[in-house]
Structures are given as structure tokens and as C-alpha cells.
Design a protein around this nucleic acid. Structure first.
Length: 137
DNA sequence: GCCAACGTTGGC
DNA sequence: GCCAACGTTGGC
């Protein structure tokens, strides 16, 4: 079991839209970055991830689960691009903002802090537990 | 809205 | 295979 973080601009695809898809989940498509794609290839059914709102909000809002492993991204014919499907599991009780994470000091090595532009990234078990707690779960 | 960081593309 | 130009992302 590994942990991940999925970044989305809420005006493009928000947590609420993800929740509306229910257990059916939704393709995490549109990723055109090799690093992000490679992480998706590593994902297994049942892996969990944080759902992060970039741009205006800049906070982790919920938890998602991988419900289909990497497959061709249906939004392109280019077979370089694959994606997984994810479904919403539960929202955080309180969102954990990027400012919270940066101010904490324990997350200096976290991809979210170090590689701000990477849209799909790994989260360590420690980071996962600490942020869950900060989010009130 | 601006700008820095970074990934990708294409010419050579 | 290198590197400059360009486009995109995302924090502020």
C-alpha cells in the first residue's frame, strides 16, 4: 500500500465533482508529464491519495482511492499517456493548506513543497499520517 | 495578474 | 545530442 497526492485546479476538476462520481470514480486524465505518468504506473488498486486544490485554494481537501490501475488515457490517442481512475473516499474535516504544511517544518522534504509543479506525486507513510491528523481524521 | 521554475520541442 | 525558445503551471 502506497500513498499519493493528486493535484487539480478546482475550476477544472474539483473535489465536489470527484465526490459526485461516487464509487464509480473517474479517470485522472490529461496528465502530460512523464514523472507524473510514471507514478501513476506504479499505483496499485486500493492505494490511497490526497486530493489537493491548486491555484486559488492551495489546500488538501480529501482522500481518494485508486480504483483502476494505469491504462490508456482516453483523452488522447498518443499511447505515451496513461492514467489511473480514482474515487472519493472521504473529505478531511478541515482542509490542510499549503501554508500550514510549509509552516509546520516537518514537510520540508515533501514533494508538494519541493516540486510544486508536479501534479501527481508520492507521499510517505509518515507524511500521510501527519496530514490526516492535521485534517481532523 | 505577474513571474519564476521547469518541462518539452525543435533546429542545428 | 545540445541548447535556445517556448509554453505551462502554480505560488504569491
Amino acid at each position: 500500500m502506497r500513498y499519493w497526492l493528486f493535484k487539480s485546479e478546482p475550476s477544472t476538476w474539483s473535489w465536489d465533482q470527484q465526490v459526485a462520481k461516487g464509487d464509480a470514480g473517474e479517470e485522472w486524465d490529461g496528465v502530460r508529464n512523464y514523472q507524473a505518468r510514471n507514478f501513476m504506473r506504479e499505483m496499485k488498486l486500493g492505494d490511497l491519495g490526497f486530493f489537493y486544490h491548486s491555484q486559488k485554494d492551495r489546500e488538501i481537501v480529501g482522500i481518494v482511492e485508486v480504483c483502476a490501475e494505469a491504462h490508456q488515457d482516453s483523452t488522447t490517442d498518443d499511447d505515451r499517456w496513461e492514467c489511473v481512475n480514482i474515487k472519493a473516499v472521504e473529505p478531511l474535516k478541515t482542509g490542510v493548506t499549503l501554508a500550514d504544511i510549509k509552516a509546520d517544518g516537518r514537510f520540508d522534504e515533501m514533494a508538494l513543497v519541493k516540486s510544486s509543479r508536479l501534479s501527481v506525486q508520492p507521499v510517505t507513510a509518515d507524511e500521510w499520517a501527519m496530514i490526516r491528523k492535521m485534517g481532523g481524521l
